[in-house]
Amino acid sequence: MHIPDGFLSTETWAAAWVVSAGAVGYSVKRTSRVLKDRTIPLMGVLSAFIFAAQMVNFPVMGGTSGHLLGGVLAAVLLGPYAGATALACVLTFQCLVFQDGGLTALGANIFNMAVAGTVGGYGVYRMIARTSDKRAVVVGTAVASWFSVVLASVLCALELAASKTAPVGVVLPAMVGVHALIGVGEAVITGAIVATVLKTRPDLLYKPKSSVEV
């Protein structure tokens, strides 16, 4: 789902850069308001954790495999703003070091996966996990993970279509179809990871109301 350079029209990637820069800037501000001088070390190490968690591969079908996106995992553990910041850092690193996704397309990739996928997924998670009941948290995480992967793939397809690289009728069903499957893997693994954290250190899970005292 990492869009390479050359796939998006100038209007599309430039607009995505502007939106993503604003959204990430806002997230960084919100994160540092809560974490204060802890922001840098905490976010740095936890972004590295999200990067390592993305090494988890799972088979999709026909020999292809997907890796963990980690958007909802980041949002459930760190909160939506810190989660979006961490994911934006991971995507920037992947783009610069591994050439995974283009530099002009980085804005669009950040928007799809770090902004919409993470914050949108977090919204779904909050809707399901209203109480701190453990089952609700795990189920909410799983559903939100699936949703965030599919949402990111829909946005990716729409951007490709808006750039006239592929017609909507082909790229949308293809992207959503594949990612609906990848999303199941993401949901199972993210749900299980959160279940483990709930069992061992439930205090580390992000709690929206008491977030002033992280």
Binding site: P41, L42, G44, V45, L46, A48, F49, A52, A53, V56, L77, V188, I189, G191, A192, I193, V194, A195, T196, V197, K199, T200, R201, L204
Partner: peptide, 16 residues
């Protein structure tokens, strides 16, 4: 695998 990532998160947090 999921258990490992969960443990990895706790360790990363403590390291941070």
């Amino acid at each position: 695998l999921a258990g490992m990532v969960g443990v990895l998160f706790v360790r990363s947090y403590e390291r941070a």
